[in-house]
Amino acid sequence: MSAIEPPVQRLWWKQPLDRAELLWIVIALVWCLILFFMMPYWHLYGKQNLANEAYRESPDEYAKKTEAMVAKYKVREEGGDLKVPVVHPPAGGDAYLIARLWSWYPILELEAGKTYRLHLMSMDYLHGFSLQPENINIEVLPGYDHVITVTPTHPGAYGIVCNEYCGIGHSTMTNKLYVVK
């Protein structure tokens, strides 16, 4: 009779539905379909999608590409004695960002309204690219060069926080990203 005893009617799958249940199932199913189709819809009409462009890459090769970009487009250094290069890659071009224990390298300076191919890859453990206060969060894996085609909207100094636990120095892994006019 109750839920802890065998059903009274042996052929329980022949039991008719209650009206409240039927109504709710129909409503819930419609809502579930809306939930589902919002994702393809946003791919077609929304502006925030991951293209899932990624390449297998070795840390050495990735570091080489990053250093080539730094050598070519460095505009200044910051961070006192650390002398972290600030790099201003050309609009429409590739911008490489290295994630490693426990820093981001280099500092990127992008132009508002321009589109960049932002590369993210880790040299060691997993890291998390968290752009604040914009709140864009992307997983960064070693061995996978993840390319995000991004268009910064507003000028300002943004923070990059690591939000994938990467060991004892996890909290120290923060950096800047500049967007200029």
């Binding site: 500092i107 998390g128 926080v161 994938e164 636990y165 996890h170 909290s171 120290t172 923060t174």
Partner: peptide
């Protein structure tokens, strides 16, 4: 929703060169 990371010991980032 305000962007605070999980599994993070110190979100004041005290002592970091480039804190947020």
């Amino acid at each position: 929703t305000l962007g605070v990371p999980r599994r993070d010991w110190d979100i004041t980032f005290a002592g970091n060169t480039f804190p947020y």
